[in-house]
Nucleic acid binder design. Structure first.
Lengths: 182, 182
DNA sequence: ACCGTAGCTGGCCGATCGGTCAGTTCTGAC
DNA sequence: GTCAGAACTGACCGATCGGCCAGCTACGGT
């Protein structure tokens, strides 16, 4: 339930995004966010129902995008799904790379978080598409490697321009899946 | 400095390893460990200097193994280093998969932890070997993908027998690096 | 001039955490 | 039996955390 936007609200979200990505959710206190956002701790709780609500609002967009993408992929059959899955996933991971970092920084808790409850199913569908609808262990394992490899690479602070990163991750992923680019 | 072993000591370490892997370091309290290990919280602190000491003792073996492996890799030149790096890293990740899970569950903090201070350098050397000593962005990015992909795959609870996982991860990693197996 | 309300704050609360300590129980050496 | 020390524990402490509340300030409508 986002309230009408305000300058301070955006400021808080920006500060929280930076701090969560750097120190994790549990590793960031409301005090830390307040200092970074140049306001009081009580002001945070005026704009947001609680610490968790801040996280929820930050992670809702990537969660919804992931769900939407994985739903679209279900329309594609067999190996036709592989390339769209790779490019779509890489794009998503790059667009929300800070959010990915937050999720990966505290995976166990995040997967238990309501707003991310959709992730296991979405990731399953994504893995299914990456595996070209194959149920063989080999395909499932390589799909998992691609999902993890892209996420970690995006979360790590690699000094390379976004264009190169995107291209190389897409090609690398396709190689991993055994579908080298001509 | 590990004291002489005792039954309770091992019991505590086992309990802590399970709980840290499942809920993360910060997500596990001394109380939780005490319950799991069937002893009092005070007893934990009799056997260990503190919560951190438990973590240190759990992560020292994998840290030392990683350091040793990356040191050995420095002796290999150019592309000769790639395959040993892959098989070595996959083996290490599988052997210490619970510890990998702990580290990845709270990456930011863990990298700041003294016992894991060796990791950035070791990972750098590993990436260097995986990249076949190349400094091109493409090679560095794919190396990063392999490191992340293997770690995440190993940390995730994939239902596949260890032999298959090892084989497929090694082959998948080699494909990612553009070195398909015959 | 008055008022309602949105925005914001300092101060406080209960819960939980890691850690300490005095004291008890167990056990093997003599 | 006695005693020393290892093993273990319940009770407690200070710090930190997320969250709550009474109240202050600024401002637009009437």
């Amino acid at each position: 339930m986002p309230r009408p936007p305000s300058a301070m609200r955006r400021q808080i979200l920006d500060a929280a995004l930076r701090l969560f990505a750097e120190h994790g959710f549990k590793g960031t206190s409301l005090h830390d966010i307040a200092v970074e956002a140049h306001c009081s701790k009580a002001s945070l709780l005026y704009h947001f129902a609680g610490k968790d609500a801040i996280l929820t609002e930050l992670l809702t967009p990537p969660a919804e995008s992931l769900t939407a993408m994985s739903e679209e992929l279900t329309a594609l059959r067999g190996e036709q799904a592989v390339e769209p899955a790779v490019t779509g996933y890489v794009g998503l991971a790059m667009r929300f790379h800070l959010e990915v970092k937050i999720i990966f920084a505290e995976l166990p808790d995040m997967l238990g978080h309501p707003v991310l409850a959709v992730i296991p199913r979405a990731v399953d569908q994504l893995a299914d598409a990456l595996a070209g609808r194959s149920r063989e262990p080999r395909a499932r394992i390589t799909a998992q490697m691609v999902i993890g490899g892209v996420a970690v690479t995006v979360a790590a602070d690699v000094d390379a321009d976004p264009g190169t990163m995107r291209t190389e991750m897409v090609q690398g992923a396709l190689r991993t899946l055994g579908r080298p680019t001509g």
